[in-house]
Design a protein around this nucleic acid. Sequence first.
DNA 1: AAGAAAAAAAAA
Length: 870
Amino acid sequence: MQSCDLSRPPSWHRLWGKARPIEGSTGAWHPLWKHALDVAAVGQALLDARPAFRDRLATALGQDAETARRWLPYLLALHDLGKAARGFQAKVPALWAEDLLGPFPEAAGADPGHPALGAGLLELFLPQACPGWDQDGYQAVFGAVFGHHGRPVAWDVEERAFRREDKRQARAYIETMRALFAPPDVPEPQARAKASLLLAGFAVLADWLGSNQAYFPYDPAEEAVAAYWSKARRHALLAVTEARLSPTPPAPPLRFTALTGGRFAPSAVQRWAEETPLPPGPSLTIIEDITGAGKTEAAVILAQRLLAAGRARGIYLGLPTQATANALHQRLRGLAGKLFEGPEPPSVSLIHGAAWLARPTSPHEGDSAAESAAWLGQSNRHRLFSDLGVGTLDQALLAVLPVKHQALRLHALADRILIVDEAHAYDAYTFAALERLTAFQALLGGSMIVLSATLTDLQKQRLARAWGTPLPSRPPPDYPLVTHLAETATEIPCAPRPDRVRSIAVRRLASVAAVCAEIRAVQARGAAVAWVRNTVDDVLAAQTALAAEGVAAQVFHARFAQADRHTVETDVVARFGPAAPAASRRGRVLVATQVIEQSLDVDFDLLISDLAPADLLIQRAGRLWRHLRPPEARPLPQPEMLILSPDPAQVASAHWGRDLLPGGFHVYDNPRVLWRTAAALFASGRLATPQDVRGLINRVYAPDDAPDDPPPLVDPAGRAQAQDWADRAFANGNLLDPLAGYSLGNKPWSKEADISTRLTQETSRVRLMRWQAGALQPWAAAADPAHAWALSELRVSRTRLAAAPPPPEVPAAALADLRARWGRYDADCLPLLLSPSPEAGLFTATVADARGRLGTASYTPTLGLILPRA
DNA sequence: AAGAAAAAAAAA
Ligand SMILES: [Fe+3]
Ligand SMILES: [Fe+3]
């Protein structure tokens, strides 16, 4: 048969595979068969560059490594089989090959897409393509490569969808590939789900790189199959290397002193990370210790040792917020060179939705194939393949949700040590997603390190169960604690870092007036004070109340335009940060929401907080006497946290606390958690860290009724717990099932816009702007308009702000034009037109709440957005 | 009515 003569072009040479030439391309189109070979060659080069991955994949397939190396390129070559069908070929009429396909079709039928066409065609040639396999086997393995457009295929295209010419060309396609690759007869896959998941991401990666015209230029010339295959392999080698997809060699196992420059002695946890014998296979390590004890350094040491031992080829650090990711990326960027040692410096990426704001270039910049040296920088999905990635956990969680190209993310992570920082910082829905990610990582053979200050026993058990190594029903009470899960579970109590051991006083304040009086008194003595409140409205009310008593307080919350929030944050850190001179903090008062709970390195002489769950109070207390200052520089005799709280001894009804803190009791909706927190802290009058942490957290979050719990709070607590269960159930409906492998299952793949890594109340994305000189100007200034608009943005509950009728002088066309310039993903932002008011620095705008009631909102750069009272 | 937090462009 002519198509099998490797010294000639195949009979189906004229079928096109690609027809979108880049600028400067010499060829106008690329033959389908050449594209198939390009992708197969990239796959083989990737396997050769990453023997550990090759072996993992081979084992899942039930093949030995050498067989897999010969068989997988054949499999990849078939990924675009559906492009041989007339339905696809008709998309470019000028390239229609009438001699191969018959007359050009008059009416285009419904287009199921070439991935689905490929699946349909394969089913017509099973005895040739995969002799002896049953349906589960071929759908798992071939389905993984047909799903290279990011979603699994449905296998719903039937034989009657094809004509004789379709089948003839598909047969020729398969015969050419069998002749070239001579695929060995292989058994059905050993571990179907695992094999399909590993393959799906691998196929996408090979297809993306094999479609890069910088390495695989369009080449419509007729050419011997064997000759082009050698060419493709050379190109593939270069492409894999330059895209930085071959592993960077790790440095020899790193010592703590080498990482930190020897300024500190390692803590017990850090010594463990440095010295513990490594298990032969994948492992999950959970490190529990207080914030600031150096857990991240311990994790990096352990991760690097795992790299050096060949357990993975990179590291991804997932954090709860973009801001913490930015900060950690800054910190680690300079250290990355110590983790790897290659001829080139390791690739390091910041990975989250707003990372483009932190980079010099504009968003979604033209990823012309010519700058393929920057292949990793093309999108966040590409960046996950960096040697060291620092970003939000959400970027990793998208690997276990039914969204496009999740398998690519999974593929990147399976080869990396996944470090999850601040694992306690997630709600029920997102924590369920983290559990699922843990299960996927365990299945695919990746390793994980989870860090937390305040994980409950239940959360820890859930992670362990997801990993597949259950913990004893009562984990040890020790803290700090390392829990190490490999084949078996080991728990290693560690001594705390001596300089982090302390005890602070805790005292209850019963009213807002009492708080104001206390602030006035200590301000007079020169103390720097922070009052952490639970809602923005409460912060603004406190600022007003303090002002009435002659105390000028600075406010900080999240209802600022990004640019102003950044200014306030910089100012707060300058005033209360480690470098702040005594004079700048003396007698200063800050009233803030939860924005100062995390990641800000600030220090106060006195900390006041509205009652909040114990873990958050511990977090807030971390801002009290945080920095080392001589005692005589402290205007107060001891570190003390004051808590504005109802009296836990007086619980008359389920309404407890709602008169004093209505907003706070809505935000933290389990009053039993709040009551237990108050009862425990006020009974002892002290908070000792780290020793009290474990007991307090487990007591406060115990799922069952405790003897002391006030009966009126039992029902509301039950409702709050039921909500958590509902959120988990909703998550489980969305989250992919590892045992289902790469398949559609019953998951909501088609509703990608509704799939999220977090479960939230509806919010409005508001962009502040002004009407000036006949144009809409962003509130914030920046050289690049995309930056300026992003910096002018804030988020606010949709219930409070759902619409904003523009002033009459602004033409509707200007707003429509603006939305068009914002583009697809930002067009839903709400333009909020600020008008200057008689008061200097104060701007106003008309707003409507979700029920359409109009009111006047005001904005200032120091107070933020003030909404009309509900 | 009420917090903070995240995400989102491909391989014709
Ligand atoms: Fe394709
Ligand atoms: Fe392709």
